[in-house]
Write a protein that binds this DNA or RNA. Structure first.
Length: 227
DNA sequence: GCGACAG
DNA sequence: ATCTTGTCGC
């Protein structure tokens, strides 16, 4: 049975939660935020969808940059081990995403993830988690805030507003389309906030979501029909 | 103690 | 994430 609201779900095991939190605290020490040290020629977008209660399907879409032409599409599906717990999304979705990633013939210079990067209580959003596991530059583009406060950016495309948490700017609230709800852009690993923001903007052509994650989101739903 | 809470 | 209909605007 699925729960209407996630807080109707049974409380997570505190022992497991403590263990996962400690793992994030340890991983946090290895995060590197810096100016990109790569030439962006290939960018990947990834996202997951669910088939029923306990099967996850992840998709990776590889695009050329800055053309944004689709170069490759792969997907992988398997069982999920954990329930969704705010702040621990990566432990639920990353395992399957990593298996899909292995299927790519060519590897991207940067991965854009559907979710947060360092804009997380312990700076370990799923984009950062994946970046550390792959030792690859990653950035996150989320549709909703997880932590932090911000003021609404102007209604025109390109407007930005900082997302602040504990006196630090952890993401940029970016308006990628006129009069449409903004997205939350944050670096994941091996990238900085400014670069992540400009790349997100450069990938937002005629939709709210930048092409990499928009297409990954789209195909995750299409591939599901094939299962 | 009372809310908030990625996908 | 997922369940769902019509509706508004470019």
């Amino acid at each position: 049975m699925a729960y209407y609201r996630n807080f109707d779900a049974p409380p997570p095991d505190p022992v497991v939660l403590k263990k996962l939190t400690e793992q994030q605290n340890e991983m946090q020490q290895r995060i590197i935020l810096q100016k990109p040290d790569f030439d962006l020629k290939l960018i990947a977008g990834c996202d997951s969808s669910f088939i029923g209660e306990d099967t996850i399907l992840s998709a990776f879409i590889l695009l050329s940059y800055p053309d944004l032409e689709v170069v490759e599409k792969v997907w992988h599906h398997g069982p999920v081990e954990l329930p969704y717990i705010p702040g621990f999304l990566a432990f639920r979705e990353a395992p399957n995403l990593l298996k899909a990633y292995e299927k790519l013939q060519q590897k991207p210079d940067l991965i854009m993830v559907d979710g947060h990067g360092i804009s997380h209580p312990r700076r370990l959003g799923i984009a950062t988690h994946l970046g550390l596991h792959l030792n690859k530059p990653t950035m996150g583009v989320a549709k909703k805030v997880l932590v932090g406060k911000y003021t609404e950016p102007a209604v025109t495309k390109g407007s930005v507003s900082p997302l602040v948490y504990r006196n630090e700017v952890i993401a940029n609230v970016l308006r990628t389309k006129d009069k449409v709800k903004p997205v939350f852009v944050s670096p994941g690993h091996l990238l900085d906030l400014e670069s992540a923001t400009s790349i997100a903007m450069a990938c937002a052509i005629k939709h709210k979501l930048p092409e990499p994650t928009r297409l990954a989101d789209h195909y995750a739903g299409e591939f599901k029909k094939l299962v």
